[in-house]
Nucleic acid binder design. Structure first.
Length: 780
RNA sequence: GCCGAAGUGGCGGAAUUGGUAGACGCGCUAGAUUCAGGUUCUAGUCUGGGCAACCAGGUGGAGGUUCGAGUCCUCUCUUCGGCACCA
């Protein structure tokens, strides 16, 4: 018996695929059916991990299946190769970020090839190369022209000891991840993209994303966090100041008994300037700002506040209400200032109780006779009927909200509006290994975009990394000093780089026209492929990447580059790969790399294991016990084939009418085609597709027992083996090429047409009639 | 608190539309092959009863709709995920 030698066979077919360039995809001809099968591109961190193997095995099955169905398939791979790990490798190990990254790419590309993934490598993209990132700069300039990119101040995490800005994930329990020093919020000038201009569209279009999982749609809705309400301007008594509040319950405005501001609210300072409350209020604000973020805003934290000594005038009834600064008011939410209605909001109630402020009910339940006059013991946030509210008495909450907002607008002190949890996208990073932001600051002209013909703004080869004092690029004199492109006078370059989510927002367009030197892509070249038919990746990108890329498509639509506004038709989120019940992570010490399994069992077995051990959307426990079964499965096919190979009629022999075992085998063969087709094509139930093929080989084995078989049985066996080689080839491509060639098939099995189901063979010739009485099986 | 997903053998998981629950694989048990280990092959493997055919129960829990429910409806418990002093 000749054994199945995975290593040798896999290497042979990989080099033959390479030689024949079978995975290269040409621009489609008119009438071609196209399919864009995309997987989220990896960060080249060093070596591939098991999550990659799983993610890309799923995509490869779909791509190979679609090709066999006669579709023109775009299946490509690239590298999300800007980012912090390269910079850290430089700081900790003295590596050159570019060399480090490119060497990781070479390693990982080799690993992907070893796994037999069917990518068109001629379209490979690496985001750290100027050929790619110059188009980030180009997009930025277009957004600058359209006012989508703008510069503003924002509070960022700042470490005094390192003199550097930290990302949120670099702040651990309020301290710097590197030096453990205290982190505080400090204001910086940053570039922003106006994602909030698209917030309504981003939210409302979620309803149309029918090919996306519900949980992702929900997460995006939560993330955008729209709430409808009204903005109302309160003038400050004895001053020309005024303060805007946002409320979803303007119907309760007659019950507002105080106003509360966030500690960061810009009005706080001027309210108390020159008053005897100044010291106390400043002390409170300082105390709040010096706390770390978790402690400050955790739920259940005691209500704290301080009276400013000033009063705001409720524009509806001209009543003066005290203005407080309160710890429970967040600057990020609404306007950072609230009108407090303790009778109908629990937080306002708790605060009022603590500080002895008035609690005045203005809403009674629908159907109740009226306000009973008893002091409330807790807030009643429910909608009801408005009372004690002047001309609005008797209206139900919803009507009152509409009427009051309209009146506020008519009288010029408010309007109906909405707020969002989603904020504008801050894209500035004080980092080296990223796309330079193409802006020059001139004393005379202000911020000026770098002219298109001077792109790309090249990232300098070297910059001091890990030094305190801000952006590494700001310390590269030759980079910083430049003449103003408008007036020619000496000026300074922007020294921040872009968030790497910019790269991943549009990289998949670049695959479609990777050599273009005139534009990020030619609209005519993306048209046949976009939107992406299937996008596969991890759930961890549900909000950030998948919101940014949706925003980017809408922005490109407004630039006239594309004609649709949602980039991904179907999204598939595969589960995590876990080990012994835990997510693999360096800190848990349970990271295992897949090379070991590939080395021992081969690529086909490794791929089968990932796909068979769990449904793709669920978490997969990478326990080694299951892999043996997959290796056994392939070996079993091999042995069973060996047993009958000599008996099989030539390829193309017509199958005579058969009955008995031969007929049963033919039926099993066609049922397998049916099931695998449905499982890959419609449902992505790849685990059950594999089990269907396992059943087929079990049925084949009953006939292929080494005994002499008649012509009908031999023909049925050939049909079964040929079918098996075809339907299993997306999962175990090398093995199936080898089997196909031993069956005497011509060409590559991956280029064969997907087998057709003979419907007549799906019908049972004898039907088991089940007789049930009261739901119990009674007879057959 | 709001929203979403999911609960099926010892384990991973099957069961396209309401129609024989537990496919397929792992593990386990027994036997065969082998000097032995591994490999491979055969049989068995939801629970209880029975030599057996078979009978009864069984998909987190409690109700309901239906000739018939893992699947549909109501309530409930648990787990996982997202958001959250969100004004």
């Amino acid at each position: 018996m000749s054994g199945y030698d995975a290593k040798r066979i896999e290497a042979r077919w990989q080099s033959r695929w390479d030689e024949e360039r079978v995975f290269e995809t040409a621009h489609p001809e008119p009438g071609d059916r196209t399919y864009y099968c995309l997987e989220m591109l990896p960060y080249p961190s060093g070596k591939i991990h098991r999550g990659h193997v799983r993610n890309y095995s799923i995509g490869d099955v779909v791509a190979r299946y679609r090709r066999m169905r006669g579709e023109s398939v775009m299946h490509v791979m690239g590298w999300d190769s800007f980012g912090l790990p390269a910079e850290n490798a430089a700081i900790h190990r003295g590596a050159d970020p570019g060399e480090w990254t490119r060497s990781n790419i070479a390693t990982m590309r080799g690993q992907f090839k070893r796994l037999g993934f069917s990518y068109d490598w001629s379209r490979e993209v690496a985001t750290c190369e100027p050929e790619f990132y110059r188009w980030n700069q180009w997009f930025f300039l277009r957004m600058l022209e359209k006012g989508i990119a703008y510069r503003a101040k924002r509070l960022l995490n700042w470490c005094d000891d390192c003199a550097t800005v930290l990302a949120n994930e670099q702040v651990i329990s309020g301290r710097c991840w590197r030096c453990d020093g205290p982190v505080r919020r400090r204001e910086f000038d940053q570039w922003f993209l106006r994602t909030t201009d698209y917030a309504d569209e981003l939210l409302e279009d979620i309803d149309r994303l029918e090919g996306w999982p519900d949980r992702v749609r929900t997460m995006q809705r939560n993330w955008i966090g729209r709430s409808a309400g009204a903005e109302v301007r309160f003038d400050v008594a004895d001053s020309d100041l005024s303060i805007e509040v946002f409320t979803t319950r303007i119907d309760t405005i007659y019950g507002a008994t105080y106003m509360a501001l966030a500690a960061e609210h810009p009005a706080v300072k001027s309210l108390v300037e020159g008053t005897d409350r100044r010291e106390e209020v400043h002390a409170f604000v300082e105390a709040q700002l010096s706390k770390n973020l978790e402690d400050r805003f955790a739920e259940g934290v005691e209500k704290l506040g301080v009276f400013t000594g000033r009063y705001a005038i409720n524009p509806f009834n001209d009543e003066q209400i005290p203005i407080w600064v309160a710890n429970f008011v967040l600057m990020d939410v609404g306007t950072g200032a609230i009108m407090s209605v303790p009778a109908h909001d629990q937080r306002d109630f708790d605060f009022a109780t603590t500080f002895g402020l008035e609690i005045r009910p203005v809403i009674r339940p629908v159907g109740s006779e009226g306000f009973d006059g008893k002091p409330p013991t807790e807030a009643t946030p429910e909608y009801g009927v408005v009372h004690s509210s002047g001309e609005y008495d008797g209206l139900e909450s919803a009507e009152a909200c509409a009427k009051m907002a309209a009146d506020a607008e008519a009288r010029g002190f408010g309007r109906a509006t909405r707020t969002y949890r989603l904020k504008d996208w801050g894209v500035s990073r004080q980092r080296y290994w990223g796309t330079p932001i193409p802006v020059i600051y001139c004393e005379e002209c202000g911020p000026v975009g770098v002219p298109d013909d001077q792109l790309p703004v090249l990232l300098p080869d070297k910059a001091p990394l890990g030094e305190p004092g801000g952006s590494p690029l700001s310390m590269v004199e030759t980079f910083v000093h430049v003449d103003c492109p408008t007036c020619g006078k000496p000026a300074r370059r922007e020294t921040d780089t872009m968030d790497t989510f910019v790269d991943s927002s549009w990289y998949y367009f670049r695959y479609l026209d990777p050599q273009n030197t005139q534009a990020p892509f030619d609209p005519a070249k993306q048209a046949p492929w976009m939107p992406v038919d299937l996008y596969i990746g991890g759930i961890e990108h549900a909000t950030l990447h998948l919101i940014y890329t949706r925003f980017w498509s809408k922005m490109m639509r407004d630039l006239g580059l594309v004609e649709y506004d949602e980039p991904v038709t179907r999204l598939f989120t595969q589960g995590m790969v876990i080990k012994d019940g835990f997510k693999m992570s360096k800190s848990k010490g349970n990271v295992v790399d897949p090379d070991e399994m590939v080395e021992r069992y081969g690529a086909d077995t490794t791929r089968l294991f990932c796909l068979f051990a769990a449904p793709p959307e669920r978490d997969l426990d990478w326990s080694e016990t299951g892999v043996e079964g997959c290796a056994r499965f392939l070996n079993r096919i091999w042995r069973v084939f060996d047993r009958v190979a000599q008996q099989l009629p030539p390829h193309g022999t017509e199958i005579p009418p058969v009955d008995g075992e031969a007929f049963a085998l033919r039926r099993k063969t066609h049922r397998t085609i049916h099931r695998v087709t449905e499982d890959i094509g419609a449902r992505l139930h790849l685990n059950t597709a594999v089990s269907a093929v396992m059943e087929l080989i079990n049925t084949i084995a009953t006939l292929a027992d080494g005994s002499e078989r008649d012509a009908g049985e031999r023909a049925a066996l050939r049909e079964a083996f040929e079918t098996l080689a075809k339907v299993l080839s997306p999962f175990a491509p090398h093995f199936c090429e080898e089997l196909w060639s031993r069956l005497g098939g011509s060409g590559f099995v991956l280029q064969c047409a997907w087998p057709e189901v003979d419907r007549a063979l799906l019908i049972e010739d004898s039907v088991t009639l089940v007789v049930q009485v009261n739901g119990k099986l009674r007879a057959r």
